[in-house]
Amino acid sequence: MRNRGDEDLETPITSMIDIVFLLIIFFVVTAAVDKDMVDESIMLAEAKKSPAVETSDPRMVTINVNQRGQINIALQPVTLNQLEQMLLALKIQAGDSLPLLIRCDGNTKFDYIDRVMQRAAKIGLYRVRIAAMVDG
């Protein structure tokens, strides 16, 4: 009788563990999807006075520029011409106020950033943000 009671007791805990692990996996996966837009190999320059962003526009297009001037969007490498095409298509969808975020490495020459900004300005996207790391 005692033995049988113990067996009854074990069942809800195992199913609960299943649910818990499912929840954890769900959170880990959704967190990973968020980070996919970001090239982890890029070490941003540091900003000391600026506040960290709380919420950003969901339409924001993140453009990663590494120190050799290579561009990628959501880890998908693109050339300047492809970037221009993409931005043009996005601008038609989202309008002139489409915000751009340039994530450039601390060693990226301004020349490379300028090339991206030139293309953005050519299309008519004048509002650009540059990402920086906030310490602390």
Binding site: F27, A31, A52, A132
Partner: peptide
């Protein structure tokens, strides 16, 4: 998990304007 997620998004977005033609 929520706290570690927040920590990684400590980024500042510095807004600039590009010269319009």
């Amino acid at each position: 998990f929520i706290i570690t997620q927040r920590d990684e998004i400590s980024e500042a977005h510095l807004a600039i304007n590009l010269p319009a033609p």
